[in-house]
Design a protein around this nucleic acid. Structure first.
Lengths: 336, 336
DNA sequence: CTGAAAGCGCTTACAG
DNA sequence: CTGAAAGCGCTTACAG
């Protein structure tokens, strides 16, 4: 019997008790007499009453929700992280709300925004390009995950991107490749920078010269893999890098797709390594050699960390060592 | 100069005005004298004040947010829909919050939940398995998108799934395939059912018999494509379907990946059609023939519809005809 | 075990 | 143009 939205007062009237009792019957059933509780519950059913979360939040100063701010929901990389966050949060009694952080960058969020206090008890920020001071009003616990902010002291869950790049380069080098090109991620992004650095330093450590044409700009997308492939193909065949390390799996797939359609073969004509190990990588043709990121663990750890912060529990180890990455050798790389 | 969280009262005191004036200076600058406004703004800056959205929502009974409930954030299919929703919403002054609808199915959300009134002004529900009566407290405008609920009168934005399946089958038939198998989506899902029906009726209309072994259970995932491929391969080579229509692109990629790794070739040995046209489909090897869904348009239309509902504007045409699908012929299908 | 009352942080008629 | 006051829908000490 649902009729319009009813408040706690409606329920109280029907049950013949005070609103305080209704509230207690719902939140602390043991603190109200059995008979009273029954009357309340029946009134709740009769009215279809549900507590207004906003009113409750305002009163209790808690929301039991964690807000996740992601830079790009169109990036398949985040999905598994989000589901891990949701799971862990649920097991601690928190709900998870997700918002695209891109709009926040544009607008002026000085005074009003999606993320402010009151809507959430804590924030997980996946976007290293956002100024966290602008994201939240001072007091809200905030943890960074995946990306990070240089010189900040925020608790951060991330992998060792430099090491990931190094593993890729060493693998290729061990297969006798010396000319190893790199297709980078978006300029300015911390992940791009770290992977780029890892590539450069590993090349140097192995005494492989980096040719001027072996760096390709990109942005993690399929499309950027395609356009890098075009540029690479435009180089004289005998002067091309024999292997390519891509800043993301999607980019690698774009590269392989284009190059293959142009008649070359991977890995026979060129070896390719990705980064991320998204679900599709093992099913791609050829299956993709890549750097595995523990996405579930990152999500879970991020959730645990904010929750601990929210509860003022010991946070030691929160910003501990980066999570380990792993080289997964599959079909897109071969001995030269 | 940010020091703890400050309230409107702090600002008022510093500016030497009432809280009413602070509120007005922020929300309706034109209604307060220039000089006063300046004092308020400077106090705002000094305190780092941001309005508490929860308090405002409670007072105004509006949130300016739209909540999107998605069944599975790990499904790459939703990302583009979500970004379209976010864009359109932003252009109308609404923020978008996203939540995983899966946990809602489990728990008892009779009394408290993520989606209740107060947190959002309207809901876009992408999950046809959820009972919308339980999702929202009566009054919140709700529109279904992608999936729908049989026999409900909710405004619904969807494509013609039966027609999509039909296009796939007709394409394959025109390429001289008569044995066209189907790998289905999850049982009970409206999309699965519609695509399955479309396959069956198209086969019938074309006078192609459906062999008992030509239906494979699945669930839209890569993995389900792989296991269908195993079953298909287990059939005697001369008794297998020569073409497969998959309920999703991911499933098709899983099928192609496995079958190729087992030494067969697509499309030479078997033609495959997917459904969705996700970003990767054109880059996959072979590129995937599939049914294109206008994901951006669906997201945009869903957003426009809820917003119109929220504003009590004319909703005519909201549940108009389904959006058109389109066959995209690429490399995974060939003449038999 | 239950109720009256205060208060969470805002906004908005209503006066002036 | 500005302020005092009420009220959005709850919860929680505090009495009884």
């Amino acid at each position: 019997m649902v009729t319009g939205k009813s408040t706690i007062l409606d329920v109280a009237r029907i049950a013949g008790v005070s609103t305080a009792t209704v509230s207690r019957a719902l939140a602390h059933p043991d603190r109200v007499q059995q008979a009273t509780r029954d009357r309340v519950m029946s009134a709740v059913r009769k009215t279809g009453y549900r507590v207004n979360p906003v009113a409750r939040n305002l009163r209790t100063q808690r929301t039991n929700v964690i807000l996740v701010l992601a830079p790009n929901l169109a990036n398949t990389f985040f999905s598994r992280i989000l589901s891990a966050v949701t799971e862990v949060a649920a097991s601690h009694g928190f709900g998870v709300l997700i918002a695209d952080s891109a709009p926040l960058g544009d607008h002026d969020l000085d005074v009003m925004d999606l993320s402010g206090d009151g809507r959430a008890d804590g924030i997980i920020l996946l976007d290293g390009a956002l100024d966290p001071l602008r994201v939240t009003n001072t007091d809200l616990p905030l943890v960074m995950a995946c990306e990070w902010i240089e010189d900040s002291t925020l608790p951060t869950i991330a992998i060792d991107n430099v090491q990931g790049a190094r593993l890729a380069v060493e693998h290729l080098s061990a297969l006798n490749h010396h000319r190893i090109a790199h297709i980078a991620g978006p300029v300015g992004n911390v992940l791009s920078t770290a992977r780029h650095d890892g590539w450069r330093s590993a090349m140097q450590a192995l005494d492989h010269r980096i040719e001027q044409n072996d760096y390709f700009a990109g942005d993690f997308t399929l499309g950027s893999g395609v356009s890098a492939a075009r540029q690479w193909l435009a180089q004289p065949a005998d002067q091309r890098a024999t292997a390519v390390f891509c800043a993301s799996d999607e980019c690698a797939m774009g590269f392989i797709g284009h190059v293959t359609r142009q008649g070359l073969r991977v890995p026979d004509d060129v070896s390719v390594v990705g980064f991320d190990d998204i679900d599709l990588s093992e099913h791609f043709l050829p299956s993709l050699t890549t750097i595995h990121q523990p996405r579930r663990r990152m999500g879970a750890r991020a959730a645990e960390t904010v929750i601990r912060l929210i509860r003022h529990e010991n946070t030691a180890g929160a910003d501990a060592a980066p999570l380990p990455v792993e080289l997964v050798v599959r079909g897109s790389t071969a001995r030269r």
